[in-house]
Design a protein around this nucleic acid. Structure first.
Lengths: 339, 339
DNA sequence: GTCATTTGTGATAGCGCTATCAAAATCATG
DNA sequence: CATGATTTTGATAGCGCTATCACAAATGAC
């Protein structure tokens, strides 16, 4: 009967099946699902019933091809475990998932050439947008993203020449205020512990710190920039280096809470009293900073809110609205006992 | 001249453009890119040149539709910040990216209905596989995944009735040995601190602990199961509860290093000496456990290796090979100063 | 009532790629 | 050199959906 010469369908229920079941054209079904207001109530109900009965699920692949656009967003992060990355992701997903968007995530492990490769692969799908957790990119990457004309969002920290959109906190100011707070409390011999400073975000920290130190005529020379990750063990490992190089150290600013907690533990080991002998402050207001001993003075960064704001900004772009600029995302000083 | 009646192309370079440039058919180009060995060297070079010259990038969307399969893998995790999730992701990506696979990541936030919704959305793309970081699922989800006939991988811990594949460590045994080690060191009044025990993984911990305690005729009643996340602050918050309920407590087993570190800090605050007054052990061998004060006895879980092994298992499935069972993934006891 | 406008609906033709098959080219064999 | 077996290549027809346009139906203006 039926001449099945070429490839037969994959067996799954298709739009055409639903259309036949409901006794309408395929376009009407397509519209009923995407823009219900364009279809009369009568047909809409019929179609809904048919969808239910057949258990139809749209094939996004076909949709993406036909419309030359998808609801897939690429996200490239340097390291999933660092810098509030998972919180931002959670915030993004919170907003984007209900709107039908999926996120393809990839980790560049802090390597620009890896970021390039990842994006090359990711952009072969018709992306709806790209989200980057860094502002430093290879020229090729900038080119691709610019020419692709999809929304590009660089999040985490503010930057001067964003490819397209940029949402994040002002690290320079945040670090400036943190450092100045220490200075105003009377500390003079202050050190800065960075980790992986080749990263733009840590350079911003450095800049804010310089600004504060120079403003108050203090020496900004006590800086260590560890090549390791900004985690607990690096913090513990670097504290001795500081004490060796600058025995007069009174306070230590760390660019992450993990570094600070690591330093805190090393102080305990060496019977250095915090804050009496040495004040230590962190950055991030992580969970650890709130319960460590002594509790850590730090800067709260609203990572989750950044994610939410970023998601909303993207949705606004997709629907062509003007981006509603909600509450500004500002870091907050959290004064605790470590200084 | 050219009658552009219907929709025109998107402007991007297509396979057909390359074919024309190289003077061959589209199928030959398609083959040259996917299965080069099926194309003669002469044409292959010509096609390579054309690809280079035109800057052709395949459209994965079209490929996925035409072949009814893609290189997109869905991954659903309960919480990106917990339980070595980011390490496993890194391991997976390390293996899967070079093979051309992308990962769509989503967070269920420990809610089964959310997992269901996420998977429903994700499965609308022609997935190559699905990776789940849990073994507890709604029946609907099990059905979908079983019927879809794609490889399904449940990772993190071993489970009894996997949907398809399962790679992970044996938490029951790991916790059994950790507890038994404490017992053999002479501790008798031992407590167990779980967080979010409704999760299957913590129930496995509980089971291992019961096994050890009962084997040595000790009371397994000192258990607290906090409803909060297994993080530092929960650890700190729950320690007083233990001391209140069981003042005779000699040792505390925590199901995560973060809980243990939190408890450690709370001990410092209360001048409880570890391990003299109270021994504390963790689980995970996280970075913090290696530098905290005192350093934490814990169980090392090879999260990254689990990810790598999982990626390799998937690749093997994709290419139809028999899965090469590499080194078994076993947790290791790390004895340090906290007990 | 006619005509212009605004809906609502469906036939059709792709989107860019791959499965399938048939034709062409190459190789092996006697 | 003919014959069959094998490899290489290309024409064709979809994959399941949406953009586009054309037409029918409903609405409004006069």
């Amino acid at each position: 009967m039926s001449i099945t010469r070429k490839r037969r369908g994959t067996g799954r229920v298709t739009l055409a099946d639903v259309a036949q079941q409901a006794g309408v054209g395929t376009m009407t079904v397509s519209r009923a699902l995407r823009t219900p207001e364009q279809v009369s109530e009568k047909l809409r109900e019929k179609i809904q019933a048919a969808v239910q009965e057949l258990g139809y699920t749209p094939n996004l692949t076909a949709s993406a091809l036909a419309s030359a656009s998808s609801r897939t967003i690429a996200m490239v992060v340097p390291n999933l475990a660092e810098a509030g990355c998972s919180e931002m992701f959670a915030g993004l997903q919170q907003v984007l998932h209900p709107a039908g968007y999926q996120i393809m995530l990839a980790e560049s492990r802090h390597r620009l050439e890896r970021e390039e490769k990842l994006l090359e692969a990711l952009m072969a799908s018709n992306l709806a947008a790209a989200i980057l957790l860094s502002v430093e990119h290879r020229p090729t990457v900038r080119n691709w993203l610019t020419q692709s004309e999809i929304p590009v969002l660089e999040i985490g920290a503010t930057c001067h020449d964003p490819i397209d959109m940029n949402i994040g906190i002002d690290n320079v100011t945040a670090m400036f205020e943190l450092t100045q707070m220490l200075i105003k409390r009377g500390y003079q011999n202050i050190g800065l512990l960075c980790a992986r400073q080749e990263q733009w975000i840590f350079q911003q920290h450095l800049q804010g710190w310089y600004k504060a130190m120079l403003k108050h005529h203090l020496s900004p020379g006590r800086v260590i920039n560890a090549a390791a990750a900004p985690n607990f063990s690096t913090g513990a490992a670097q504290l001795p280096e500081f004490l060796l190089a600058w025995p007069e150290l009174e306070a230590l600013v760390c660019v992450s809470d993990e570094l600070a907690c690591g330093a805190l533990w090393e102080c305990q080991r060496r019977r250095i009293r915090v804050p009496e002998d040495l004040a230590i402050v962190g950055f991030g207001d992580s969970d650890a900073s709130q319960v460590c001993q002594p509790r850590l003075t730090t800067v709260a960064v609203p990572h989750y809110q950044i994610g939410v704001a970023a998601g909303q900004a993207l949705l606004a772009r997709f629907t062509g609205q003007t981006p509603t600029s909600g509450a500004p995302l500002t870091p907050t000083l959290r004064l605790r006992e470590s200084c």
